[in-house]
Simulated scan of single mutants.
Amino acid sequence: MARPGLAEATGLARRALTRPFLQLSWAIAALLLLAAFVPGRITVNDPLFGELDRLLPPVCDHLFGTDNFGRDLFARVVFGAQETVKAVIIAVLVGLLLGSTLGLVAGWYGGLADDAIMRLVDVLLSVPTLMIALAIIAVLGFGTVNLAIAVGIGSVASFARVMRGEILRLRAAEWVEASAFCGTAQWRLVLIRLLPNAFGPIAVLATIEAGCRNERV
């Protein structure tokens, strides 16, 4: 089994980026990130300032109308996304980094390391995510960042299992055995060759987890 070349991977990425629906998805994601980090670029209305015009329907000055206190609903949605998107990014990154690292070590080294890590994963899977989050918040204290970290730890098990499965699959590939036989350094083989090829399922899982963590955060 030959390892995909750089030119082939670049061609696939170029064809994927030229698809209209994918471009629309990137545009929506960019708009969400813009609203999360610089909400003032999206709307000039103050989400906390109330006007005399209450319960207005959507109009030009108030795209989503106003609430019963006269506050602009669109501004409240945009500024409200700021904390939500940041918390989701932190939660997914925590699960991605910790889970992928554990899965990589378990899949590559095997043996005692694999047994110990997978038993830890089994423990995480057996305990409800809410209980884990509450225990971590009790230790770290309440706050947006601490809540995101607690929710992210709940997804460590999923990332670890997917990464371990991908590493076990790639270890059996002929090009991995050939690279090891030719004397390629272990760190180079793992970081430069295995991880990029295992990134696809991890990226899909991260996208799914982002939606799930958004509901829990």
Rank of each mutant, 00 (worst) to 15 (best):
residue 1 M to T: 10
residue 3 R to W: 10
residue 4 P to H: 05
residue 12 L to Q: 04
residue 13 A to N: 06
residue 13 A to Y: 03
residue 14 R to M: 04
residue 15 R to T: 00
residue 17 L to K: 02
residue 18 T to Y: 11
residue 20 P to N: 05
residue 24 L to Q: 02
residue 27 A to I: 07
residue 27 A to W: 12
residue 28 I to A: 15
residue 28 I to Y: 09
residue 28 I to P: 14
residue 30 A to E: 09
residue 32 L to E: 01
residue 32 L to V: 11
residue 35 A to T: 06
residue 47 P to F: 01
residue 50 G to A: 03
residue 51 E to M: 05
residue 52 L to M: 11
residue 54 R to P: 02
residue 57 P to K: 05
residue 61 D to T: 01
residue 65 G to L: 09
residue 71 R to C: 06
residue 79 F to Q: 07
residue 84 T to N: 14
residue 84 T to M: 15
residue 86 K to W: 14
residue 86 K to I: 08
residue 90 I to V: 15
residue 93 L to Y: 03
residue 96 L to S: 04
residue 99 G to S: 03
residue 99 G to N: 03
residue 102 L to A: 12
residue 102 L to G: 09
residue 105 V to H: 09
residue 106 A to C: 10
residue 111 G to V: 01
residue 114 D to Q: 11
residue 119 R to C: 12
residue 120 L to F: 15
residue 125 L to N: 00
residue 128 P to H: 07
residue 129 T to A: 14
residue 130 L to N: 06
residue 134 L to A: 08
residue 136 I to F: 00
residue 138 A to G: 15
residue 141 G to V: 05
residue 143 G to D: 13
residue 145 V to K: 04
residue 148 A to M: 10
residue 150 A to N: 08
residue 150 A to M: 10
residue 152 G to E: 02
residue 159 F to Q: 03
residue 165 G to V: 09
residue 167 I to C: 05
residue 172 A to R: 03
residue 173 A to R: 08
residue 175 W to I: 12
residue 176 V to D: 06
residue 176 V to H: 03
residue 180 A to V: 02
residue 184 T to P: 06
residue 185 A to K: 10
residue 185 A to M: 06
residue 189 L to V: 15
residue 192 I to M: 13
residue 196 P to E: 00
residue 196 P to F: 08
residue 197 N to D: 14
residue 200 G to N: 07
residue 201 P to T: 01
residue 203 A to R: 08
residue 205 L to E: 13
residue 211 G to N: 12
